[in-house]
Structures are given as structure tokens and as C-alpha cells.
Design a protein around this nucleic acid. Structure first.
Length: 692
DNA sequence: CAATAGAGCGCT
DNA sequence: AAAGCGCTCTATTG
């Protein structure tokens, strides 16, 4: 029968019996309501499943029947002058199973050892967890993760609305299906809002989603073994579960504290805005970069400040490289440029304005912006961000809606902001971060020399570097010396040049050059190592790449001259250039790839270590919960910021939770993975600000 | 009008 | 010639 729509208990039971016969199945959900894209909050009304030889779709709350009585339209509101959506009207829906019945019957399957496959699986796992009471257990496979591991730069070949073929940076199911099967099955974009489509349309749509997820799994998963990525994907499959369980509680915030801060920053913004206009002598759009450039850099006689620009925009740098004439719009107005004129009243006002409006943007994002009509994303005091394990080319996590990995951390404002991330009464936050994890990874790979010995001896890495390059004993290293050394260590990890080291350490360019030379003298093994990484990557001629500690690939075709030349031609497209300019571009591209090879090895391996730590933390939390089965005593992982983990724990178990977290971040499998010790710093607090 | 690019800025 | 992100805004392009 096609489509196989399940409307009775009997039908569902027999389908579940069929699915139980196999070791894996794919599933997909459709949700409705204002928060349909927030899995911890949405209302699930369809669930489809696919396995060998069969795909079924289960409706349990679709609001529409098979007949559309009137289409949805947009109408202009006479008062607000804005377009408002008038929803479509449908015939009555058929009788469907109740959600509680559906999930009762599905439970044995979802809580069995059968592999659950999905495309962006945490979304579906968290969505159904509300009905099951818990996140279904693994093993898991996520076809987005599989695709990402097979090619971190994948760009499917899709057709535009005009019928033109092009490469699109996307990992969406529809784009992968179009790429692999040349099939577009969602021309109507049903998935955007299923409540605006008929019962049978959504039935077919939902069914195809899980059908193609299943086919994609069949296509991609075997390739992982061929590419020697089995060990890597097994780790990522565990992370899929960790991320799902992390999304359920979310990050706790104090809405009242956030509102207070919004009041404060709104006032400051108004004051800053007035100060900007006063200093500029006129009103202008402060958010507009070209207008800001005019006001700052045009001569006094034409109404500007006549300031001397200190920095070019990226586009300006490109022009300079080609010896083209620079315009006023090629000069940067970023914070570094403003710092050079810190005594100018307009510049002072602009700096305050930009900082305050940035922070206000975050607050409006969380609390909902009445001006933009966006809703609050705080539910019962919690923010449920999406942590994507596949979000980067290095293996780090990315976070979105909202991004919880770029919350202000420094200065007075950072402290204020982080104080709004607050455990509810009776609970505490436990925050732990690794110390110099990237340098430790580097020392591990090298396995000898000053850096390595220093970590074995338990010396602070920046202090040790300072002692070495300044030629003084460790206890005579000053704050300034350590700051310079920190810049040098950054230079190794990121491949920074002397200019950057100088600006970071507050020293001259000449001094920075001398320190870099001195560093190469004192740490020859580090420089030999980074050279070796680059050479080995380049030597894999047809397939230049590095692999991180987890086994994940970073392909870097541009590290070869041939690859860099191809890329250079592409960047010039249409523009005129001479041989010298072309060579300069090739060199820049190739050098960038070299820095990326070294950095990805280090950053990606550090990311792997924290992923292992998260798996260990999650396991400890799970087995602890299995022992007492008391939600009021539950310890849960709730956030990660690259080298930092955050756990929510009941007051009376905070110390215990801290020990658990430390053990998970330093112990277990991690102990046998590195030749140098790891270090972590863990604190308990009511808020993120005081758990640091 | 919608989609995309660029600049800028928050974090590790 | 500083690695990796996400978000917001404006300007430009289709």
C-alpha cells in the first residue's frame, strides 16, 4: 500500500513488529505550533519510519483534511500597513490515533537496541523524548554527520528556481537527495509549515523524508568504512546521543536579570546615540558602514572628522594588492581602527554605541524583540540552543539559535551578561575548562623538547615560554613577559606573523621579529614539527589532507602549488591581473592552507578530547541517574564552549558533580590518549559569572 | 521582493 | 598574510 498511512492501533502494532525484525530504521517527525522548530517545545503530529522494504507514516494530530477550501493569502493591515498571513482553510481531518497511544506502541522499538537513523537526528530524538519521557537510547546514525565526515567541504549539485545547476554549501536532506538522486520531492516546501497543507500532501512528504534518510544511510554509511572512518563515526554516534540529552534541559537563565540588563543597555544606547549625533554635528545611520566611513574619514570642510584611516577593509586590501585606487569605503571602521583615535569624542561615542547595541541585540534575541515581533526563546527559564557536532571543518561544535558560544566574557559587561545565566533555586552550575589544551595537544604530538618537558613538570606553558625566550628563571617572569610569550604560543597554533605578535604583546614589530627568531632557537622541535605537518600534507599529492586525533579528515587541496593556482584563478574571475599579482595571490592561498593544516590538527584534536570528555560526562550522569531515578537529584551536562563544559546539579550534590566532571575530563580513556597530562579548572556557582 | 555578499564583532 | 564559528546589519544582485 502506498503511502502506508497508519490510522489504527492494529495496523501500527503489525508495523512495529515488522520494524523489530531489522537492526536499524530511519525516522522523521513533523511538528506544528509556534515553536515547531524548537524540539524541546514543539508539538509532534507526524512520525514516519523507514527500514528495509517498508516505509510507514503515522499521523496523530494533523489539523487538515484532504480538501483545501481556501488558499492562504496575505492581506495588508490598514492600521499597521504590514502584510498579515491569512491561513488556508481545509476540510476536516480524518480520525487519527492519539499521541499517547502511538508512543506506547512505538516504545518497545525505540527503546530497543535497534539503530535509530535520522537526518539531523538530535532534532527528532529530542522532539519525541517529550512523549517518551526520555531520549531513546542508541545506537544512532545521523546522515548529516556521515556526509560531513565523508567530506567536510561537501557542496551538493542542485538546480536553482531558474533551472540552473550550481553548487550549494548545504547539508539539508532535500539538497542531498537532489544531489544523489536528481530528485526534487518538495517543490511546495511543505516542510516549512505543514499546517498549511492537506493531509495527503503531508503524508507523502513525511514518508519521503524518512524514506530518503534511510536510502542516504544505506548509501553513505558503507563509505565510512571504506574511508577508514569507522572509529571516527562511532565516536560521533555517541556524541549524537550526548547532544540530544544536553538539549532537553537547555541552559537556565534568569529572565528578570536579562530584563534588568535590557533596561540598562537601552538607556545607555539612547545616550550613546545622542552623543554620536552631537559629536558628528548631524544625524546619520550609525549602522551603515559607508555612512560611518564618510563621517569619520572625509575632510572637515565637507562635514567629516578628517581622521587618518589606519586600516583597510578586506576589499581594500585586495585593491591595494592590485595597485588600484582606494576609495573612502575601503577604510575600516572596526574597533581597532577606532582605538587609534581614542581621544576623538565621536570615536568614543561610536565605540560605546557599538558595544551596547551588540549586547542589546543578544538580549532582544533571548527575550524577544517587540520591534521586530520576534518571540522569546526562553521556555520555563531555559534556552535550548542547537549544538551542532557537524558545524565546523575542524571538528569543533557550533552553536546556533542562539549561539551560546559567543556570550560576552570579558570586562564589566561580560560579567553582567554571564550573571544572567543562572541555575534555578536549589540548583548550581558547575563549570570546568581545560587549561592550554591546544598546547598540550601540540606537546603530545611532538613528544620531546621544552614544551613537552614543561607540561610533564607541571609548569604554566606561557610562563615557561617566557622564561625560555627572555632567558630568565621561571620565577622572574613578569606579567608583560608572559603576555609576549602568550602571543608567541598563539603564533604557533594559528600561524600568526610578527605583526600580530607585536600588536598582541604590545611590542614593536622589530622586537616581535626578534622574539620569533628566539623562539625558533629555543623550541626547534616545535618548528620542525609544524614544517613536517605541512610537508606530509602536501606530499599526499592527489589528496592533500591531515587527520586529527579522532581520525577526521581535513582536505586541503590548496596546500599544493597546483591547487593554490586553481583557487587563485577562481578568485580573480573577470578581474585583470599581471603575473606578479597572480604569484602573490597563489602564495597567500598556499600559506593560508599551511596554517590551516597545522591549526586543524591541533584545534581538531583538542575538539576530539573534549568530545571524549563529554561522552564520559554523559555516561557518568546517565549511570548516576539510573541508580537513583530521581529527577530532583539529576546531574546533567548542559553546555560546551570549545574547551569548557557546564553541568547543572542539585545544591546538595554540587561538590559531587564537580568531582564527576573533573574525573570525566581528565580520566577514563583520556589518560591513555596523551603523552602529557591534561589540566582542568572546575568551579561551582549560582551563575556562569561566579562559576568561573 | 528574496537571496547573497561583505563588514563587523562576540567567543575559544 | 590569525585558526574556527554565528549573528546582524547594510548594500547589492537577481
Amino acid at each position: 500500500m502506498f503511502p502506508d498511512i497508519i490510522l489504527t492501533e492494529e495496523h501500527l502494532r503489525s508495523a512495529v513488529a515488522y520494524f523489530m525484525e531489522f537492526d536499524a530504521f530511519a525516522f522523521d517527525i513533523e511538528s506544528i505550533g509556534e515553536h515547531r522548530l524548537i524540539p524541546a517545545q514543539n508539538e509532534v503530529v507526524w512520525l514516519s519510519m523507514a527500514t528495509y522494504g517498508r516505509t510507514i507514516v503515522i499521523p496523530f494530530g494533523h489539523p487538515n483534511g484532504n480538501k483545501m477550501i481556501s488558499k492562504s493569502t496575505r492581506k495588508k493591515n490598514r492600521v499597521t500597513k504590514k502584510f498579515e498571513a491569512i491561513p488556508a482553510v481545509f476540510s476536516a481531518p480524518p480520525e487519527q490515533l492519539r499521541p499517547s497511544v502511538v508512543f506506547d506502541i512505538l516504545r518497545p522499538l525505540f527503546f530497543s537496541d535497534r539503530r535509530k537513523v535520522g537526518h539531523n537526528l538530535p532534532f527528532d530524538l529530542v522532539s519525541v523524548s517529550k512523549y517518551f519521557g526520555d531520549v531513546p537510547p542508541g545506537p544512532y546514525s545521523d546522515t548529516i554527520v556521515d556526509q560531513w565526515l565523508l567530506d567536510e567541504n561537501f557542496e551538493p549539485l542542485v538546480t536553482s528556481a531558474a533551472g540552473k545547476l550550481y553548487r550549494k554549501p548545504s547539508k539539508k536532506l532535500k539538497d542531498l537527495v537532489e544531489h544523489y538522486y536528481q530528485l526534487k520531492y518538495d517543490l511546495e516546501e511543505v516542510g516549512k509549515d505543514i499546517s498549511q497543507h492537506t493531509f495527503k500532501t503531508v503524508a507523502l512528504y513525511s514518508l519521503l523524508d524518512s524514506k530518503y534518510t534511510w536510502l542516504l544511510f544505506q548509501l553513505l554509511h558503507p563509505q565510512l568504512a571504506d574511508e577508514d572512518l569507522l572509529r571516527t563515526v562511532e565516536m560521533e554516534e555517541q556524541i549524537t546521543g550526548v547532544v540530544s540529552r544536553m538539549a532537553v534541559p537547555g541552559a537556565p537563565v534568569s529572565e528578570s536579570r536579562l530584563s534588568e540588563l535590557r533596561e540598562e543597555f537601552s538607556d545607555r544606547l539612547i545616550i550613546a546615540e545622542a552623543a554620536v549625533y552631537r559629536a558628528a554635528g548631524r544625524k546619520f545611520d550609525i549602522g551603515s558602514v559607508p555612512q560611518k566611513q564618510q563621517v569619520l574619514y572625509s575632510p572637515k570642510k565637507s562635514g567629516g572628522q578628517g581622521l587618518k584611516p589606519v586600516k583597510l577593509t578586506p576589499a581594500g586590501k585586495k585593491k591595494r594588492a592590485l595597485n588600484q585606487e582606494l576609495a573612502i569605503t575601503d577604510y575600516s571602521t572596526d574597533s581597532e581602527s577606532l582605538e587609534a583615535h581614542a581621544d576623538n569624542p565621536l570615536v568614543q561615542a561610536l565605540s560605546e554605541h557599538s558595544e551596547v547595541s551588540k549586547l542589546l541585540g543578544y538580549l532582544n534575541k533571548y527575550l524577544g524583540d517587540p520591534e521586530k515581533g520576534t518571540p522569546s526563546i526562553i521556555f520555563s527559564g531555559c534556552i535550548h540552543a542547537q549544538f551542532k557536532q557537524y558545524g565546523t571543518v575542524s571538528g569543533r561544535f557550533s552553536s546556533s539559535e542562539p549561539n551560546l558560544q559567543n556570550i560576552p566574557a570579558h570586562g564589566e559587561n561580560g560579567k553582567k551578561f554571564r550573571s544572567a545565566f543562572q541555575a534555578p533555586p536549589g540548583w548550581k552550575l558547575v563549570v570546568a575548562d581545560y587549561g592550554q589544551v591546544e598546547l598540550r595537544v601540540l606537546a603530545h604530538y611532538i613528544g620531546r623538547g621544552r614544551l613537552y618537558e614543561g607540561f610533564l613538570a607541571g609548569v604554566d606553558a606561557h610562563t615557561a615560554t617566557a622564561a625560555a625566550v627572555y632567558g630568565v628563571p621561571v620565577d622572574e617572569v613578569t606579567k608583560e613577559m608572559r603576555q609576549v610569550a602568550k602571543g608567541l604560543n598563539f603564533a604557533i597554533v594559528y600561524g600568526a606573523g610578527a605583526a600580530k605578535v607585536a600588536s598582541m604583546g604590545g611590542i614593536t614589530l622589530q622586537q616581535a621579529k626578534e622574539f620569533l627568531a628566539r623562539h625558533a632557537e629555543m623550541f626547534p622541535e616545535i618548528h620542525a614539527f609544524t614544517r613536517r605537518v605541512v610537508e606530509r600534507c602536501r606530499d599526499r599529492e592527489d589528496f592533500p589532507h591531515i587527520r586529527t586525533m579522532s581520525g577526521q579528515y581535513r582536505r586541503l587541496p590548496e596546500i599544493t602549488r597546483k591547487g593554490a593556482m586553481t583557487a587563485a584563478r577562481r578568485t580573480f574571475k573577470g578581474e585583470k591581473y599581471n603575473q606578479k599579482q597572480f604569484e602573490a595571490r597563489v602564495w597567500a592561498i598556499q600559506s593560508k592552507a599551511e596554517r590551516q593544516a597545522v591549526n586543524t590538527l591541533i584545534q581538531g584534536s583538542a575538539a576530539y578530547l573534549i568530545k571524549v570528555a563529554m561522552i564520559q560526562t554523559d555516561k557518568a550522569c546517565e549511570s548516576d541517574f539510573a541508580r537513583h531515578k530521581n529527577a530532583a537529584d539529576r546531574i546533567q551536562l548542559i553546555m560546551t564552549v570549545h574547551d569548557e563544559l557546564m553541568v547543572l546539579a542539585p545544591d546538595h550534590r554540587a561538590d559531587e558533580a564537580r568531582e564527576m566532571l573533573e574525573e570525566a575530563m581528565l580520566g577514563g580513556e583520556l589518560q591513555d590518549m596523551l603523552r602529557v597530562p591534561l589540566a582542568c579548572d572546575a568551579h561551582i556557582g549560582q551563575t556562569w559569572a561566579d562559576a568561573k
